[in-house]
Amino acid sequence: MSRARPEPMQVVKQRRDAALLALAGRVPYIRFLDIGFDRRGDELTGVLHFDEKLIGNPHLPALHGGVTAAFLEVTSIITLSWSVLWEDVETGALTQDDLEAGSLPRLPKTIDFTVDYLRSGLPRDAYARAHVTRSGRRYASVRAEAWQDNHARPIAQAHAHFMMPRREV
């Protein structure tokens, strides 16, 4: 028996991008901070688009530490949720119609969040990636880092625990 023909690339991309948009686009606070997500396959990079209102120290100037923490938290939540959603998007268990109707699982809830500030955030775009260290049925551990011009010189790193949304059986 021959293997099923792979889907056309455009179909795959469209479905994945629609899922990502449905996931992140519905959260007002993500729009408030103007955070977008770059996707390469299943790998996500958060992009914090710079705006004057994100400044926390007007004298330097520097990004507000709270914004940097929030950016890492948003990237962690979306990356974690995306990793759980991925299989359903790939198998087609979650269809384009479901996504458009907004029937997505609830987002994970933050239990605790710890951030280390390594360098001051410059008044320009920042990037972040989160790594799901463990994703269990009830709890998940995630670490994340944010950088600007140079990935090897991160501005902040975080680790956090989340409570996973109950999944319907």
Partner: peptide
């Protein structure tokens, strides 16, 4: 409403609490 993190419940995002 701009800082809501859970659109279904209207609960504000943890990030705003961090700030």
């Amino acid at each position: 409403p701009q800082i809501v993190g859970d659109p279904e419940t209207g609960v504000i995002h943890g990030g705003a609490v961090s700030t």
